[in-house]
Every structure is written in structure tokens, then in C-alpha cells.
Amino acid sequence: MSEFVRNIRLWFTPERVRDEGGTPDYRFSLANERTFLAWLRTALALIGGGFAVDQFLPDLRWAWRVGLALALLAAGVLCSLRAVNHWVRCERAMRRGEDLPASRFPALLSLVVAVVAVAMVVVVLVGWEG
């Protein structure tokens, strides 16, 4: 957990990231930045999905609609926070010449998306007009 808090401090202080190790080839930094942006797009798509569930499934029971929307929104929040965190960790690992950090997050996110998708199919088929 303290590792995470230290990472959060790095989110706001470019000098501290720059202090460590050497500057990597700028192309690697740009590739890391694009990966960060791709994760941010995923987060924005999840947030848009949350809005869409709320807006375009108005006949659903309130609890299902709000539950699904909040699940998607929470996934979006986690995804965007994790995007920054992973970006900082990768940037630091590249400066120190270490291996890039491994992550369980992609597997976790795909499981959550799969569960939400199955729930949505079930809700749309069964819970209509609840």
C-alpha cells in the first residue's frame, strides 16, 4: 500500500520521476504515453457505457438499471486511475532500466466486462418491464 501512496505522489511531481536513472529513448516514452491514452479511452468508453445504460434502457427496473450503470462507471474510474498509475510505473522502470511491471488488471477488467455483459443480456431478456 505504501508503494501505491508513493506512486500517487509521483503522479503530480515530474521532477521526482526525472530524478531517477537516465532518460530513455523518446520513442519508448511516446509509446508508453499512447498506451496510457488507449487505457484512458477504454475508461471513457466504460463511462459512456454507463450513461448509455441509464439513457437507453429506460424500461428496466430501477435497481438493475442503476446497478449496471454504476458497475460500468466504477470500472471506468478504476481504469483511468490505473492508467496513470501504470504509466508512472512504466516510465520509472524504463528510466531505471528495469523490466516493465506486470499487471493483473487487464484480466480483471475483462472479467468485469464479461460479467456486466452477461448481466445485461439476462436483464434485457428476463427483467424487461420489471
Binding site: W11, T13, I47
Partner: peptide, 30 residues
């Protein structure tokens, strides 16, 4: 020709915009 790396401040700002939008959405949905 040799662009500097993204500043963590800006990365955090972009991500926080997404988070704030999600919070806004949660308030609107409930």
C-alpha cells in the same frame, strides 16, 4: 524534432477529468 516526455501532472489531469465525469454520471444516474 525530439519531443519531451509527458509530464505526470498532465497525465493525472487527463485521468482526473475522466474520473470527475464518472462521478458526475453517478450523481446523475442515482
Amino acid at each position: 524534432p525530439r519531443p519531451p516526455a509527458l509530464a505526470p501532472r498532465h497525465a493525472t489531469a487527463a485521468a482526473l477529468c475522466a474520473v470527475a465525469l464518472a462521478v458526475c454520471a453517478a450523481v446523475l444516474v442515482v
